[in-house]
Design a protein around this nucleic acid. Sequence first.
DNA 1: TGCTATTATGTTATCGATAACATGTTATCG
DNA 2: CGATAACATGTTATCGATAACATAATAGCA
Lengths: 347, 347
Amino acid sequence: MTLSDRKKRVTIKDVAHAARVSTQTVSRVINNVSYVSDETRKRVEEVVEELGYRPSTLARSLIQQRSYTLGIVTYGLKYIGPSRTLNGIADKADQLGYMLLMKELDDFAADSIDEVLDSLLARQVDGILWAVPQIGSNRNWLTNRLASTPVPVLFLTMEPRSGVPSISTDNYQGAVVATQHLLDCGCKRIAHISGPMDWWEAQERKRGWRDTLEKAGMDASEYRCTEGNWSSASGEQAFIQLLSSFPYLDAVFVANDQMALSVLREAHRQGIQVPEKMAVIGFDGIPESAFFYPSLTTISQNPQLIGEQAIQYIVEMIQARQENQPVVITSRFIQPTLIIRESTKPA
Amino acid sequence: MTLSDRKKRVTIKDVAHAARVSTQTVSRVINNVSYVSDETRKRVEEVVEELGYRPSTLARSLIQQRSYTLGIVTYGLKYIGPSRTLNGIADKADQLGYMLLMKELDDFAADSIDEVLDSLLARQVDGILWAVPQIGSNRNWLTNRLASTPVPVLFLTMEPRSGVPSISTDNYQGAVVATQHLLDCGCKRIAHISGPMDWWEAQERKRGWRDTLEKAGMDASEYRCTEGNWSSASGEQAFIQLLSSFPYLDAVFVANDQMALSVLREAHRQGIQVPEKMAVIGFDGIPESAFFYPSLTTISQNPQLIGEQAIQYIVEMIQARQENQPVVITSRFIQPTLIIRESTKPA
DNA sequence: TGCTATTATGTTATCGATAACATGTTATCG
DNA sequence: CGATAACATGTTATCGATAACATAATAGCA
């Protein structure tokens, strides 16, 4: 293929000319609105087919002030969680006829946030999905910026705030269920390996662990908890440290499956039998966790479901705004589920 | 925030009016072209700041026939490989000032391919990255369609074809290295668990295994190979089947790390010591593989690198086309690397 | 039969920006 | 000092579509 083979884009004018009608009539045919005689319709359709005409969504978006495109801001795509969410998002968006304009954030400076927001808005997205975990104070920007944003913004994974729409996994409840499960297994000295404590999700999981133990009249002191950074490598470190600060533990609730993987390995190396001597429970429910040795009991999130619900929700918001109707703004939670496998043994 | 608070988009006209100049002058200021007096420039800039004006990329794309947006077609986002590639893509695209319009393909019917292509082209993407693995005959469409596509299309992971630009991991060479490594470890009866054989990548990996064994004068008969579907669950099945058809094996080259995970577990269950009795090598190099028990020797791909190179390459193609210069169309390969860990032991 | 409703199609304005062209003003130089 | 170049700004056309309005032909009905 040489360069000269490049075809010029076929426009509505070309079609109109070839079919000997006005562009408006062509528009009527392709959008199937108003009156067009069968004869004309047929003629236009033939020309469309013949020339391979496809209307420019770009031009359409400009005049209609609506792009059928959603801005997706993600973070940490290299991890499996965010990409599974993205998967759910992509799926549902497609179903509802939306395209996705994607942007991966790599830091939380106010400037880069502004830039990302602006670049999406400049492309007339109809709504924005902020699929970036809440870390430290990286949500403070919204106080100033959100009010002046001309399209709905929906947040995934954040602490509920009144007036801010969000969808999150119920990390706290998940942690409660996990810890309760360990109690039900008869465990008495339950430790925790947390995620990085500036992550809201990590805080919630830890809080669930602490509250449940305290409610059961048990000790949840700080020495019974160490902090990882979600990676398997950090999980190994955290576990080793935990063993030295709290050698008599008989169960660990690990804040994610990746870290749990290396806890299992290290336990095996040190001759600690799982689940007999020590029960282990993870969080996330990655597919591989069923094939760890022993297979891992875990709290399973459904990131695809979150993605789907997110699209559903934001499309509702867009629609409502279009029709000038009020929207109920809520913070929604999705419950994770307990999957019992070999690494814990109910009494 | 009530609905009436929604601000109308600030346009170039608003700025022009407020600064008492023509829209053209505003355009000159924001694009920094041609002559504008310091005084006027300052005044315009102040108004831009004050009104929070951001030019509409949409309108700009329409007139300039260029969107600075790339279409990305992916498949299987729920798996870690594709999303890591996407990560590399997102990163580099951002660096070079491109946005990504994403579409996840879920089947390979000609119709859906046409639709995806059309929807991207309707939004004036400057180029398309086809990041969908080659499976069965799902690349046949390009014969007809590609020639009439007005923008460059770059394929990730496909069999080289003359005239079609592509970037792939060198799966064959990776498999050769893997198999050779097992030979170097002194293994004599080397089995293979392949991916689904309609995947080109799976074929290449198997071919590398077979060729290397035959070259070394060893047997690579069919009974020494079973087929999985990349999942850990299928790996377990494939391994069990393999053990019955080829009980005396002393090494397995597994086509990906997920399947290798369950091979390790099943070996452990059956009391087969790894690496003493049986060496295991994987493919992909997912981060977790370093924390399997035993840690997994594997052929490591760098999907982020592939993503980056892909962006680089397609941007070159776009630029060349813009300037009406010829582009050299090549099929590029990226070499994966061997990572030796505990699951194999060099002699 | 004449009037209104329905059907069919065309014309002009518009979305928000830039390209191409036009025009006026101020330096610069032989 | 007048011609030319450099500077500064404005006007009109354009990208590819749809909205809003206009017009003409046919149909239905009192």
